[in-house]
Design a protein around this nucleic acid. Sequence first.
DNA 1: TCTGGGGTCCTAGGACCC
DNA 2: TCTGGGGTCCTAGGACCC
Length: 420
Amino acid sequence: MIAIIDCNNFYASCEQIFQPKLVGKPLVVLSNNDGNVIARSGEAKKLGVEMGVVTGSIRKFVKNNKLQIRSSNYALYGDMSGRVMEILELLLPNVERYSIDEAFADLSGLSRERVVELCHFVRNRVERNTGIQVSIGVAKTKTLAKVANRLSKRKPELEGVCVGIEHESFSNILEKMETKDIWGIGRKISKKLTKFGIHNAKHLRDSDPLWIKKQFSVVLMRTVLELRGESCLDLESPEESRKSLMCGRAFGKPLKELGDIRPALTHFVQNAVSRLWKYNQKTSAITVYLYTNRFRKNIAQRSVSVSAEIEVTDDLIKLTALAQRVLEQAFKSGFEYHKVGILLHDLVSVKNIPTSLFEMGSDSQKSSELMKVVKNINTKFGRYTVTSASSTGRSGWKARSKFRSPAFTTCWNELPVVYA
DNA sequence: TCTGGGGTCCTAGGACCC
DNA sequence: TCTGGGGTCCTAGGACCC
């Protein structure tokens, strides 16, 4: 049996925990640049605010004070996520952190009664220790666990826990579920399925897997098998570390000059490399991408990405210099750029890299000594304490974030204050 | 006015090898 | 009329997730 544990309205809940006046109010969290809605409290959903809508379209609610808004605060959400995950890992065997607000766990070998009891215990413990409410779905496969999880949110009498799915009623549940609501099926595939007369999850489950593979892909075939209770997607072990990493963001305003874009890129490289350090990984290839705003139909469009290879490294200075050289290749004047970013690929764990003979006493050893110092300072005092000169200066790239709440749990100056 | 950011996996097609 | 065939590796791009 596989469980999926999912935090309810995660970003909105994080805001409410530290700002009690927001509890029970319609609340939305906005994306970078305060551009559109990326999370909603239950009350905001009831108000009819859709996921992904642009901020302008909800202005009317904000004006007459019916809706609270917050800029996204990833320092807070990341920290709260870590707290929830630690509790799950303490109470459950084989936890796979799947996303910032979701985790899978393997509950094989336990009786149904024991599973129900355990899930309620986990749910209560997470809420008591963090203030976050979770919903738990349990079934034979990951895809079915997702279906159960959906049910646990829709049926209040289940109190947030749905274990297994009774056989007879199961077909009815799938029949009422649109294909686009199945985990792994998005807009495109769902539309194509309709053309073949497959309109709901039951139709899909009862399709011929081999035919599905031929018409669509092996990915969708696995979904069919999973819906039938045949597990195709295993839990991923934490040792398998991530393979690529990216950091980029839209600018607060359009930028035309290379000199304005450089500091942004350096900033993102620094962020990316800090994460590389955190997970003890190195990279050997980078891609820098640069875009104009595709939603502005009346301006000249350009979208470019340029890659480069480098000897396996986690050296901030080398990677910054390389990224800047690649940016020069990618940049062409005459466009209003909207976003820049960097990808690091071919990540490897430091422990898996053999030391080369040529490295001893060489430049690369000196650079790693220097990096150690920078690493230590930035880990202790914050990611941007020691920074490249090219990240300072022009700051036109910085995103808008007008409604940001404090970093309640990760910054000494912003801790919540309690008056007694 | 305003349109997210960070990931994974798979496939198709080209280059290259024998 | 004929102009091999099968395998591997790499890359770009698509689709999806949260």
